[in-house]
Design a protein around this nucleic acid. Structure first.
Lengths: 220, 220
DNA sequence: GTCTATAGACGGATAGAC
DNA sequence: GTCTATCCGTCTATAGAC
């Protein structure tokens, strides 16, 4: 608890609809919003090389500043992570809350899958980070927010779609739909990092359509 | 500390403080095969807490030995990883090789999915480790060879099933089948670590059947 | 085969000048 | 808002005794 500089409370990252994590990665200009640049670079490096393997020194170097500067904007390394995962989970929670108020129809199931895919695709970089750093996030003994956030949320979505006490087959198929959707989106979306890859990437809109259809098939 | 008597009956470890060296398949004694015990404990901890967050000291402690002892059996930390991932990838390569010699029929597709699921389920602990440490493995000099080849291997399996130059929709659906199968198996299989979980686990044989059916639906 | 001891490096985080 | 300097912890890995 010291003089908290700018704003460390509620994130001004882009609640609900902002794609704040963009800009050029090539150490270009972009004076002014250092905090956002830190988030962007950190997210990129964490997703590519891993959370633990990426040191604050590395992030600072890439930005042309020093480690100490990062501590002006974030109180710790984990705090940087929280800054860009918060919004993602908030959106997921929003979807869950919405789903719980809907009637348990097939149309609701379709809508949930649709919205879920939207969330994943819009926060693809964050999702990639979460997916690739599961082990690190689990061990994170922050106390504040245990990162066992995946399972509970997935189970929530599954139950909303299948209804309570659904047979194993239904639960597995719905879970598979969610997994297949998100993972496929990652696999066929161009990675920010992997630059010299064969690139099996597929057009976003087409991919979205294919994935949604596939998820529907699984739940139907 | 831990003044470990230089001479303790080779039968029991942890003189006065064995902590929790539980875990250990039945069948015979654990004596003699320290190397295997190291692999087992390391795999478990790497999967649960993450590769980087798990120190050799931690592994050694759990086994009732010292770090130095580990270096007698493995030449480095990464070498431990290699020791238990090697077999997994070899099996995947075997499947790919086998698949390439088969006629491109629907039956072959089914067989590949079936065998793939078998490999994943039998090496579930290793798969879990790989899945949760993707980022770490990517950044690793040694791991790059391993995990960065997860993509190529997946692509290989996809191409075998869809045939060359298949349309995006087919490729995505087959990829989804593979992802859904493996990830679902993990999700509904009791985690070696998570002990106090709600446990949404499902019987192995039943799970296997459900997952295979689902994968077939996706590729069919 | 296992231990003690330690080298050697690097990480996160803080203090205080400017 | 950023920097220099530094503290302190932990880690991998090695050397050499038993």
């Amino acid at each position: 608890m010291d003089a908290v500089p700018p704003d460390q409370g509620p994130e001004e990252f882009g609640p609900a609809h902002a794609d704040s994590v963009h800009a050029d990665s090539a150490a270009g200009g972009r004076r002014g919003d250092t905090r956002a640049r830190i988030q962007q670079v950190a997210l990129e490096l964490f997703a590519e090389h891993g959370y633990e393997r990426t040191s604050l020194r590395e992030i600072a170097e890439r930005l042309g500043v020093t480690k100490a500067a990062l501590y002006y904007h974030f109180k710790s390394k984990e705090d940087i992570v929280r800054s860009f995962t918060e919004d993602y989970f908030t959106r997921l929670d929003g979807l869950i809350a919405w789903g719980r108020e809907q009637p348990p129809t097939a149309h609701t199931a379709h809508e949930i899958l649709d919205r879920y895919i939207t969330i994943v695709m819009e926060g693809s970089e964050v999702f990639r980070f979460l997916e690739r750093n599961q082990a690190s996030l689990r061990g994170s003994e922050d106390g504040k927010h245990r990162f066992e956030q995946f399972r509970p949320r997935l189970n929530a979505l599954i139950e909303i779609i299948t209804g309570p006490d659904a047979p194993p087959r239904s639960r597995v198929r719905v879970a598979a739909a969610l997994f297949a959707a998100s993972t496929s989106c990652m696999f066929f979306t161009r990675d920010t990092s992997d630059e010299g890859e064969p690139s099996t990437a597929i057009d976003r809109d087409e991919l979205r359509k294919i994935v949604l259809e596939l998820a529907d098939d699984l739940t139907g």
